[in-house]
Simulated assay, not measured.
Amino acid sequence: MTSPRSDQRLKIGLSACFSHADPYRPLFTNKTLQYVEQTIAHWIMSAGAMVVMVPCPTGETALGDVTLSHYAEWLDGVVMHGGADVWPGSYGEEPLKDAWLGDRIRDLYDLAVVEAFEQVGKPIFGVCRGLQLINVAFGGTLYQDIETQHPGAQQHRDPITYDQHFHDIEIVPNTRLARMYPEMGQVKVNSIHHQGIKQIAPGFDIEAWSYPDGVPEAIRRHPTQGHGYIAATQWHPEFRAHDGSILDARPILDDFLLACERAKVQPLPGHSPFQIRDRASRLLRRALLRQR
Protein backbone atom coordinates (compact mmCIF):
# COMPACT_ATOMS: atom_id res chain seq x y z
CA MET A 1 0.00 0.00 0.00
CA THR A 2 1.39 3.41 -1.01
CA SER A 3 1.74 5.97 1.76
CA PRO A 4 0.04 9.33 1.20
CA ARG A 5 2.28 12.15 -0.02
CA SER A 6 3.04 14.94 2.42
CA ASP A 7 0.68 17.30 0.58
CA GLN A 8 -2.14 14.76 1.07
CA ARG A 9 -1.68 14.41 4.82
CA LEU A 10 -3.46 16.50 7.43
CA LYS A 11 -1.32 19.22 9.01
CA ILE A 12 -2.20 19.49 12.70
CA GLY A 13 -0.97 22.29 14.92
CA LEU A 14 0.17 21.53 18.46
CA SER A 15 0.27 24.40 20.94
CA ALA A 16 3.60 25.04 22.62
CA CYS A 17 4.60 24.48 26.24
CA PHE A 18 6.72 27.25 27.79
CA SER A 19 9.84 27.18 29.92
CA HIS A 20 10.38 30.84 30.72
CA ALA A 21 13.80 32.49 30.78
CA ASP A 22 15.84 31.26 33.76
CA PRO A 23 19.28 32.72 34.58
CA TYR A 24 20.16 29.59 36.58
CA ARG A 25 19.39 27.03 33.86
CA PRO A 26 22.67 25.47 32.66
CA LEU A 27 21.48 25.08 29.05
CA PHE A 28 19.89 27.95 27.08
CA THR A 29 20.64 30.16 30.09
CA ASN A 30 18.10 32.95 30.48
CA LYS A 31 16.37 32.01 27.20
CA THR A 32 12.66 31.28 26.77
CA LEU A 33 12.02 27.76 25.51
CA GLN A 34 8.94 26.65 23.58
CA TYR A 35 8.54 22.90 23.18
CA VAL A 36 6.21 19.91 22.83
CA GLU A 37 6.09 16.67 24.80
CA GLN A 38 6.86 13.92 22.31
CA THR A 39 4.10 11.45 23.29
CA ILE A 40 1.28 13.72 22.17
CA ALA A 41 3.06 14.53 18.91
CA HIS A 42 3.58 10.81 18.26
CA TRP A 43 -0.07 10.07 19.14
CA ILE A 44 -1.31 12.50 16.48
CA MET A 45 1.27 11.18 14.00
CA SER A 46 0.11 7.59 14.65
CA ALA A 47 -2.92 8.29 12.43
CA GLY A 48 -0.76 9.61 9.59
CA ALA A 49 -1.13 13.33 10.32
CA MET A 50 1.82 15.70 10.28
CA VAL A 51 2.39 17.71 13.46
CA VAL A 52 3.56 21.32 13.53
CA MET A 53 4.29 23.15 16.77
CA VAL A 54 2.62 26.56 16.79
CA PRO A 55 5.19 28.86 18.42
CA CYS A 56 4.29 32.09 20.14
CA PRO A 57 5.15 34.73 17.51
CA THR A 58 5.63 37.61 19.95
CA GLY A 59 8.16 38.23 22.72
CA GLU A 60 11.50 39.89 23.37
CA THR A 61 13.19 38.27 20.33
CA ALA A 62 10.28 38.62 17.89
CA LEU A 63 11.08 39.60 14.30
CA GLY A 64 9.03 39.55 11.11
CA ASP A 65 5.28 39.60 10.55
CA VAL A 66 4.18 35.96 11.08
CA THR A 67 1.07 35.71 13.27
CA LEU A 68 -1.02 32.97 14.83
CA SER A 69 -3.64 33.73 12.19
CA HIS A 70 -1.18 32.65 9.49
CA TYR A 71 -0.78 29.28 11.25
CA ALA A 72 -4.54 28.90 11.66
CA GLU A 73 -5.15 29.59 7.97
CA TRP A 74 -2.44 27.12 6.86
CA LEU A 75 -3.07 24.23 9.26
CA ASP A 76 -6.09 21.90 9.29
CA GLY A 77 -6.74 21.92 13.05
CA VAL A 78 -5.02 22.33 16.41
CA VAL A 79 -4.49 20.31 19.59
CA MET A 80 -4.14 22.28 22.81
CA HIS A 81 -1.35 20.75 24.87
CA GLY A 82 -1.38 19.86 28.57
CA GLY A 83 0.94 21.54 31.06
CA ALA A 84 0.96 24.28 33.68
CA ASP A 85 -2.02 25.40 35.76
CA VAL A 86 -4.36 28.04 34.35
CA TRP A 87 -3.95 31.41 36.11
CA PRO A 88 -7.14 32.04 38.15
CA GLY A 89 -7.24 35.62 36.89
CA SER A 90 -8.02 34.21 33.45
CA TYR A 91 -11.49 33.32 34.76
CA GLY A 92 -11.96 36.24 37.12
CA GLU A 93 -10.67 34.83 40.43
CA GLU A 94 -7.80 35.63 42.78
CA PRO A 95 -5.31 32.79 43.36
CA LEU A 96 -6.06 31.05 46.65
CA LYS A 97 -2.43 29.94 47.00
CA ASP A 98 0.84 31.04 45.39
CA ALA A 99 1.30 27.44 44.26
CA TRP A 100 -1.81 27.82 42.06
CA LEU A 101 -0.70 30.98 40.24
CA GLY A 102 -0.32 29.07 36.98
CA ASP A 103 1.24 30.67 33.91
CA ARG A 104 -0.50 33.89 32.83
CA ILE A 105 1.68 34.37 29.74
CA ARG A 106 0.96 30.87 28.51
CA ASP A 107 -2.76 31.47 29.17
CA LEU A 108 -2.66 34.55 26.94
CA TYR A 109 -0.82 32.59 24.24
CA ASP A 110 -3.23 29.64 24.44
CA LEU A 111 -6.26 31.94 24.36
CA ALA A 112 -4.81 33.59 21.27
CA VAL A 113 -4.29 30.18 19.61
CA VAL A 114 -7.90 29.18 20.32
CA GLU A 115 -9.03 32.57 19.03
CA ALA A 116 -7.03 32.24 15.79
CA PHE A 117 -8.31 28.76 14.93
CA GLU A 118 -11.88 29.55 15.98
CA GLN A 119 -11.92 32.67 13.80
CA VAL A 120 -11.17 30.57 10.70
CA GLY A 121 -13.50 27.73 11.70
CA LYS A 122 -10.77 25.08 12.14
CA PRO A 123 -11.29 22.12 14.56
CA ILE A 124 -9.81 22.38 18.07
CA PHE A 125 -9.09 19.51 20.48
CA GLY A 126 -7.90 20.02 24.07
CA VAL A 127 -6.00 17.75 26.45
CA CYS A 128 -5.96 18.28 30.25
CA ARG A 129 -4.90 21.94 30.58
CA GLY A 130 -6.24 22.27 27.03
CA LEU A 131 -9.74 21.32 28.22
CA GLN A 132 -9.52 23.81 31.08
CA LEU A 133 -8.25 26.58 28.78
CA ILE A 134 -11.01 25.97 26.21
CA ASN A 135 -13.61 26.10 28.97
CA VAL A 136 -12.20 29.42 30.22
CA ALA A 137 -11.92 30.85 26.69
CA PHE A 138 -15.66 30.38 26.14
CA GLY A 139 -16.77 31.69 29.52
CA GLY A 140 -16.49 28.79 31.98
CA THR A 141 -14.69 28.63 35.34
CA LEU A 142 -12.38 26.20 37.14
CA TYR A 143 -11.70 24.71 40.53
CA GLN A 144 -8.28 26.03 41.51
CA ASP A 145 -7.79 22.77 43.42
CA ILE A 146 -10.32 19.94 43.20
CA GLU A 147 -9.42 18.20 46.43
CA THR A 148 -9.92 21.31 48.58
CA GLN A 149 -12.85 22.87 46.69
CA HIS A 150 -14.99 19.97 45.48
CA PRO A 151 -16.81 18.09 48.27
CA GLY A 152 -16.04 14.37 48.35
CA ALA A 153 -13.27 14.66 45.76
CA GLN A 154 -10.99 11.74 45.11
CA GLN A 155 -7.31 12.16 44.30
CA HIS A 156 -6.93 13.33 40.71
CA ARG A 157 -3.15 13.70 40.65
CA ASP A 158 -0.33 11.63 42.11
CA PRO A 159 3.11 13.16 41.44
CA ILE A 160 4.82 9.82 42.10
CA THR A 161 2.84 7.53 39.79
CA TYR A 162 2.03 10.42 37.41
CA ASP A 163 0.63 8.99 34.15
CA GLN A 164 0.03 5.62 35.82
CA HIS A 165 -2.50 7.13 38.23
CA PHE A 166 -6.04 6.20 37.17
CA HIS A 167 -9.69 6.57 38.08
CA ASP A 168 -13.00 5.65 36.48
CA ILE A 169 -15.20 7.92 34.41
CA GLU A 170 -18.84 7.60 33.44
CA ILE A 171 -19.63 8.45 29.82
CA VAL A 172 -22.86 10.40 29.43
CA PRO A 173 -25.42 8.41 27.39
CA ASN A 174 -26.54 9.69 23.99
CA THR A 175 -23.47 11.90 23.51
CA ARG A 176 -21.03 11.65 20.63
CA LEU A 177 -18.46 10.19 23.03
CA ALA A 178 -20.98 7.48 23.99
CA ARG A 179 -21.51 6.64 20.33
CA MET A 180 -17.75 6.34 19.90
CA TYR A 181 -17.64 3.83 22.79
CA PRO A 182 -20.90 1.85 22.61
CA GLU A 183 -21.81 -0.22 25.67
CA MET A 184 -18.87 1.23 27.63
CA GLY A 185 -20.63 3.37 30.23
CA GLN A 186 -17.89 3.22 32.89
CA VAL A 187 -14.24 3.07 31.90
CA LYS A 188 -10.79 3.77 33.36
CA VAL A 189 -8.59 6.72 32.32
CA ASN A 190 -5.41 8.35 33.59
CA SER A 191 -5.68 11.38 35.87
CA ILE A 192 -2.88 13.95 36.06
CA HIS A 193 -4.50 17.18 37.20
CA HIS A 194 -5.53 19.03 40.35
CA GLN A 195 -7.60 21.74 38.66
CA GLY A 196 -10.82 21.06 36.79
CA ILE A 197 -14.05 22.49 35.43
CA LYS A 198 -16.32 24.12 38.00
CA GLN A 199 -18.82 25.83 35.68
CA ILE A 200 -19.11 24.59 32.09
CA ALA A 201 -18.84 27.21 29.36
CA PRO A 202 -22.10 28.22 27.66
CA GLY A 203 -22.68 26.26 24.47
CA PHE A 204 -20.74 23.19 25.66
CA ASP A 205 -21.93 19.77 26.83
CA ILE A 206 -20.27 17.51 29.40
CA GLU A 207 -19.70 14.07 27.85
CA ALA A 208 -18.07 12.29 30.79
CA TRP A 209 -17.76 12.68 34.58
CA SER A 210 -15.20 11.29 36.98
CA TYR A 211 -16.60 8.48 39.14
CA PRO A 212 -17.64 8.64 41.92
CA ASP A 213 -16.96 12.35 42.63
CA GLY A 214 -18.48 13.89 39.49
CA VAL A 215 -15.84 16.23 38.03
CA PRO A 216 -16.27 16.95 34.28
CA GLU A 217 -13.85 14.81 32.28
CA ALA A 218 -14.85 15.40 28.63
CA ILE A 219 -16.60 18.31 26.92
CA ARG A 220 -17.83 19.13 23.43
CA ARG A 221 -19.37 22.21 21.88
CA HIS A 222 -23.01 21.88 20.85
CA PRO A 223 -23.12 20.85 17.18
CA THR A 224 -25.17 23.92 16.28
CA GLN A 225 -25.27 25.25 12.76
CA GLY A 226 -22.36 27.46 11.83
CA HIS A 227 -19.95 26.50 14.62
CA GLY A 228 -16.77 24.49 14.18
CA TYR A 229 -15.66 21.34 16.03
CA ILE A 230 -14.33 21.78 19.57
CA ALA A 231 -13.88 18.84 21.98
CA ALA A 232 -11.57 18.08 24.88
CA THR A 233 -10.69 15.48 27.51
CA GLN A 234 -9.41 16.06 31.03
CA TRP A 235 -7.34 12.89 30.80
CA HIS A 236 -4.33 12.45 28.48
CA PRO A 237 -5.44 10.18 25.62
CA GLU A 238 -1.86 10.03 24.37
CA PHE A 239 -0.59 8.26 27.52
CA ARG A 240 -1.01 4.51 27.94
CA ALA A 241 -1.23 2.22 30.95
CA HIS A 242 1.63 -0.25 31.33
CA ASP A 243 -0.92 -3.05 31.54
CA GLY A 244 -3.11 -1.75 28.71
CA SER A 245 -6.12 -1.42 31.02
CA ILE A 246 -7.36 2.09 30.16
CA LEU A 247 -9.65 3.42 27.46
CA ASP A 248 -8.38 3.04 23.89
CA ALA A 249 -7.89 6.61 22.65
CA ARG A 250 -7.84 5.91 18.90
CA PRO A 251 -11.58 6.65 18.36
CA ILE A 252 -11.08 10.10 19.95
CA LEU A 253 -8.19 10.89 17.63
CA ASP A 254 -10.04 9.56 14.58
CA ASP A 255 -13.08 11.70 15.45
CA PHE A 256 -10.97 14.87 15.62
CA LEU A 257 -9.06 14.12 12.41
CA LEU A 258 -12.30 13.34 10.57
CA ALA A 259 -13.54 16.79 11.59
CA CYS A 260 -10.31 18.26 10.20
CA GLU A 261 -10.85 16.42 6.90
CA ARG A 262 -14.42 17.71 6.68
CA ALA A 263 -13.37 21.27 7.47
CA LYS A 264 -10.92 21.16 4.53
CA VAL A 265 -13.75 20.25 2.17
CA GLN A 266 -16.45 22.44 3.72
CA PRO A 267 -14.96 25.11 5.99
CA LEU A 268 -17.31 26.75 8.47
CA PRO A 269 -17.50 30.51 9.01
CA GLY A 270 -15.22 31.80 11.73
CA HIS A 271 -16.27 33.44 14.98
CA SER A 272 -14.33 35.31 17.65
CA PRO A 273 -14.80 33.71 21.11
CA PHE A 274 -14.13 37.15 22.65
CA GLN A 275 -16.63 39.25 20.59
CA ILE A 276 -13.78 41.50 19.39
CA ARG A 277 -11.63 40.01 16.62
CA ASP A 278 -7.99 39.26 17.59
CA ARG A 279 -8.56 40.56 21.12
CA ALA A 280 -6.52 37.75 22.76
CA SER A 281 -3.63 38.23 20.32
CA ARG A 282 -3.48 41.93 21.17
CA LEU A 283 -3.52 41.21 24.90
CA LEU A 284 -0.68 38.69 24.46
CA ARG A 285 1.43 41.16 22.48
CA ARG A 286 0.83 43.89 25.06
CA ALA A 287 1.79 41.63 27.98
CA LEU A 288 5.02 40.48 26.32
CA LEU A 289 5.99 44.04 25.36
CA ARG A 290 5.67 45.03 29.02
CA GLN A 291 8.19 42.29 29.93
CA ARG A 292 10.94 43.79 27.79
Rank of each mutant, 00 (worst) to 15 (best):
E73D: 12
D85K: 03
Y229L: 02
D213P: 14
R221S: 06
P95D: 07
A62D: 07
M184R: 15
P4A: 09
L247P: 03
S15Y: 10
V113P: 01
V66R: 15
K11V: 00
R106C: 02
I40V: 11
G89K: 10
T29H: 01
G196I: 11
T58D: 05
R250C: 02
Q144M: 06
D248G: 06
P223N: 13
P212E: 03
A178T: 12
F117Y: 06
F117V: 01
G102V: 04
V114S: 01
P88W: 04
R262A: 07
I192G: 05
P159H: 05
V66K: 15
T141E: 07
I171V: 15
P273R: 08
Y229Q: 04
H42M: 04
E207T: 12
P26K: 02
G226C: 04
I206P: 06
P57N: 02
V54P: 00
H271Y: 12
E238N: 12
I44K: 02
Q144F: 06
Q132M: 03
Q144Y: 09
A249V: 05
I169F: 13
H236R: 12
Y35S: 02
A137L: 13
D85T: 00
N135S: 12
I105H: 03
A112E: 04
Y71G: 11
R240S: 09
T141L: 00
W74L: 14
V172D: 10
H194I: 01
E261T: 14
E115F: 00
A232Q: 08
D158M: 14
F274L: 06
E183W: 11
D145A: 13
Q8R: 12
D205V: 01
D7Y: 15
E93H: 12
V86M: 01
I219G: 12
V172M: 14
D168E: 15
W100D: 13
W87P: 00
